[in-house]
Computed example of a mutant assay.
Amino acid sequence: MSTDLAAGHRRTRVSNRRGASHRPIGRSRGRPRPVRGDRREGGFVTAEFAAALPAVVAVLALGMWAVATVGVKVRTIDAANSAAIAAARGEDPQAVAAAYLPDGSTVEVSTDGTVARAVVTAPTRPLGPLTSPVDISAVAAAPLEPGLDR
């Protein structure tokens, strides 16, 4: 059965079951759908958000800590590589590595016959005073340049 919508009539559906009456399309049989903004349903999302917020903040802080720590690790690796190459060339490894490292970092260089080794250690606090200090180190080696006086 179809009716004219322009005339203001509702479309209805006819059931194939015997004795069933016509009912408007889109209306449910049971409990009516809750109206948006129903006062009985309010507050649940706020309570769930308040319960989950500390966990979200902790995960974000852990992620920021990891990214900052990895950043210092990359700088430490670069400093160790540069210090080893500088030592192999006969240059000052401390001055070369200082450009990459934060204050308080140490650069130790050793020469073993044909190889120069550099060990760089950088103390860091990835999130400032909120976290404990972490010592990050890196080791690099480079072959000595031939013909240099040691």
Rank of each mutant, 00 (worst) to 15 (best):
D4H: 00
D4M: 01
D4S: 00
L5Q: 01
A6E: 02
A6L: 01
A6H: 00
A6Q: 01
A7W: 00
H9R: 00
R10Y: 03
R10G: 00
R11E: 04
T12W: 00
N16T: 11
R18E: 11
G19S: 04
I25A: 01
I25S: 03
G30N: 11
R31N: 06
P32H: 11
R33M: 05
G37C: 05
D38T: 07
D38A: 11
R39H: 10
R39P: 01
E41K: 10
G43N: 08
G43P: 02
F44E: 03
V45N: 10
V45W: 06
V45P: 01
T46E: 13
T46S: 15
E48S: 06
F49S: 12
A50R: 15
A51E: 08
A51K: 11
A52C: 07
A52S: 11
L53F: 12
L53Y: 09
A55M: 14
V56N: 08
A58E: 05
V59R: 13
V59I: 15
V59K: 11
L60K: 08
A61I: 08
L62F: 13
G63N: 14
G63Y: 14
M64Y: 13
A66R: 13
A66C: 11
V67K: 13
V67D: 06
A68R: 15
A68V: 08
T69N: 04
V70R: 08
G71H: 15
V72Y: 14
V72T: 14
V74L: 14
D78G: 06
A79P: 00
A80S: 05
A80D: 00
A80T: 05
N81L: 05
A83G: 04
A86I: 03
A86E: 03
G90H: 07
G90V: 06
E91C: 02
E91N: 06
D92S: 09
D92V: 04
D92C: 02
D92N: 14
D92L: 08
P93N: 06
A95S: 15
Y100C: 01
Y100W: 14
T106S: 15
V107E: 07
V107W: 13
V109Y: 10
S110Q: 07
D112V: 12
T114F: 08
T114G: 02
V115A: 02
R117G: 00
A118R: 09
A118N: 02
A118V: 04
T121H: 07
A122R: 10
A122T: 08
P123N: 08
R125H: 08
R125F: 04
T131K: 06
T131V: 12
S132T: 14
P133F: 01
V134N: 03
V134M: 06
V134W: 06
D135M: 02
I136G: 05
I136S: 02
I136K: 10
A138C: 00
A140P: 01
A140I: 05
A141W: 10
A141Y: 11
E145P: 05
P146F: 12
L148V: 15
L148F: 13
L148H: 12
